[in-house]
């Protein structure tokens, strides 16, 4: 189980970073989403993995999983939606304003106006 979660974090990170290094806004946003998953799962896993012991108190239960990382990740998920939305909006605004969805400043391709 630990191996599965750790390798999933690794795969998500690798995929996320590869996409973040692309040159257009959309794959970069996808890459950041993948990284968000990786980071959220990573923080969640810092409470260690427990199966079948949700942190909801009830009689007779003695083992609960660590609730704190869950609380932290819960808000992180919601906030990351807000941040994704802002980044998407910025990317969209840049594209609509310049008809260009590169993430980097583009050197003027043709300064003399030939096309």
């Amino acid at each position: 189980m630990e191996l599965l979660v750790a390798s999933a974090i690794g795969v998500l990170t690798a995929g996320g970073i590869y996409l973040v290094l692309r040159l257009r806004t959309f794959p970069v946003i996808l890459g950041m989403s993948l990284l968000t998953y990786a980071v959220n799962v990573f923080i969640f896993a810092s409470g260690r993995l427990t199966v079948g012991a949700p942190p909801v108190l009830h009689d007779g239960a003695t083992v609960y999983t660590d609730p704190l990382p869950q609380a932290l990740v819960l808000t992180a998920i919601v906030i990351s939606f807000g941040m994704t939305a802002v980044v998407v909006m910025i990317g969209l605004g840049a594209f609509l304003g310049s008809d260009d969805d590169h993430v980097d400043d583009q050197p003027d391709p043709d300064p003399e106006g030939r096309s």
Partner: peptide, 24 residues
């Protein structure tokens, strides 16, 4: 880029498995 991404992924995997196998 793929090389950098793979190394970073491997690092994330290593870090995760490291503490998943140890108690706080």
């Amino acid at each position: 880029d793929a090389g950098v991404a793979l190394v970073a992924g491997l690092a994330a995997f290593g870090l995760s498995i490291h503490y998943l196998l140890r108690d706080a």
